[in-house]
Amino acid sequence: MEDISLYMLDLVQNSIAAGATIIEISVIEDVQNDKLILSIKDNGRGMDPQMVKKITDPFYTTRTTRRVGLGLAFAEAAAQACDGGIYISSQPGKGTEVRVEFKYHHIDRPPLGRIDQTIAALVACNPSIEFVYTHIAPGGRLRFDSREVQQRLEGLPIDHPDVVEWIREYIGEGIDEISGGGGV
């Protein structure tokens, strides 16, 4: 994957596949501590400890012929290449949080990419899922909650093309403002 916004899109697919109805996505640009954190938290079906071990324990996974899937392995490899890592906490029946951490100033750290496009695509295709997006950067904080938008629309579907376009612009401009313009 080329950038953080594509890892985000891929990891959210896991939450959707797990039957989540609320998905909280956040990006924290903790420049002071030289960290970039992507976190996806969902209320999907969750995983038991063995499953979490299976998908995170490198010793376990190298002994099996192949990974359970590709997505988490990609994210983990990218994070580890940037002195970071991937952390999963999950409870069956409750939900899952996947946190991917990168060293912020690492030369190989993927750029943020088009987070506006990722969120717009997710909302457009999954109108009944609530997406909450929080972005914390040195220049401020952005928060988007698709349920708030839905309430304002009073019955107009949130996947109406004009609304989707508005969401994309709202997030794009919001991120530009707090990260000081331009894709980091």
Binding site: M1, Q13, Q117, A121, A124, C125
Partner: peptide, 25 residues
């Protein structure tokens, strides 16, 4: 219906999906 598996996303499914949305709009 656009495929959004890991391989699809890596190969460019997002711009494809957005292009469909844009044309429909």
């Amino acid at each position: 219906v656009v495929g959004m598996g890991t391989c699809g996303i890596a190969a460019g499914a997002r711009p494809v999906l957005l292009a469909f949305l844009e044309e429909v709009k």
